[in-house]
Design a protein around this nucleic acid. Structure first.
Length: 281
DNA sequence: TGGAAGCCTGGTGT
DNA sequence: AACACCAGGCTTC
């Protein structure tokens, strides 16, 4: 099915910028699992072409656009965060990169897995978790739905550990229990304020300031969220903050949120992507 | 209250 | 080949 998109959209940058971990690229096609569907997307000149299984494309199309962050007016975001040369350069280079709007539970699990790890490994971890505790989709034996909090809580720490998650297995097991038992209502955090939602998230095992801000930005409608990881620390040190400045994580985050404003998270995503690319080339 | 060590594992460098 | 060292971080002391 063809979906025309009139606003700027960069499919590759959106799916390859470390926001989600279940997209595989084969040629010019991205395959992923969203809404319990195996989805394949290809960028075309004026939009995207996609297919999905097992649901009808007509039903999935609006959900997919929402997931891809296409319901946000990027032009006004750019206007808000274009406060200096560095950010303007990154915007120019990755124009159309979106912030995804993911399922909060899956996003949370992905970023708990991310601590002291790297994208290839996180992807493998998340895929292994899906295969072990999710359900095969349609007749495909290759891709599986993402397990529910109940699925993961029942699986238990031991079986998670055996997938090679290391010390993260404890975090995942505890957090899954908290969500499954209703001690943590992730969906309600979408309507909460940024501050309150952050406060709630960091009570979960394996969730500190960085992971919480990733979940807030990529799944809970909090565009002011600003995850400070080692790449962003480099950006801030090299381009923004004096070296003598105190470098505690929450202080750096607060500074950036004040500097970039209500859409600081978008600035974060562009600077992050730009800084990593620069290191690789 | 800040800062450093430890934690599982896999990849990378020596 | 075998062995350090470290990574997109959290927790604990």
């Amino acid at each position: 099915m063809l979906v025309t998109i009139d606003e700027p959209f960069n499919l590759a940058a959106t799916l390859e910028s470390g926001q989600a971990f279940r997209w595989h690229k084969a040629g010019d096609v991205y395959q992923g699992v969203v809404f319990g569907n195996v989805i394949e997307i290809r960028g075309v000149p004026r939009g995207i072409e996609f297919s999905c299984l097992p649901d009808a494309e007509n039903d999935i199309a609006p959900l997919l656009c929402d997931y891809l962050g296409l319901n946000i007016d990027l032009a006004s975001v750019y206007e808000a965060i274009s406060v200096d040369k560095h950010i303007e350069e990154a915007i120019t280079r990755y124009s159309g990169m979106r912030v995804l709007r993911q399922d909060p539970w899956e996003c949370l699990v992905g970023f708990i897995c991310s601590s002291a790890s790297n994208i290839p490994r996180i992807s493998r971890n998340v895929e292994d978790i899906s295969i072990a505790f999710g359900k095969p989709i349609g007749r495909s034996i290759k891709r599986h739905s993402f397990p529910t909090p109940e699925d993961l809580a029942e699986a238990g720490e031991k079986r998670i550990f055996r997938l090679g998650l290391g010390y993260r297995a404890t975090y995942l097991s505890k957090t899954a229990q908290a969500v499954a038992e209703g001690d943590m209502d992730l969906a309600s955090l979408r309507k909460d304020s940024y501050g309150h939602a952050l406060e709630a998230l960091v009570t979960l095992a394996g969730v500190g300031d960085k992971v919480a801000n990733c979940v807030l930005l990529f799944s809970l409608d909090k565009p002011e969220a600003f995850p400070v990881d080692t790449w962003i620390i480099r950006v801030l040190r090299e381009w923004y903050l004096d070296e003598a400045m105190p470098n505690s994580l929450p202080k750096m985050r607060a500074w950036a949120q004040g500097y970039f404003g209500p859409y600081a998270g978008y600035a974060n995503q562009y600077l992050f992507h730009e800084r990593r690319r620069r290191d690789r080339s």
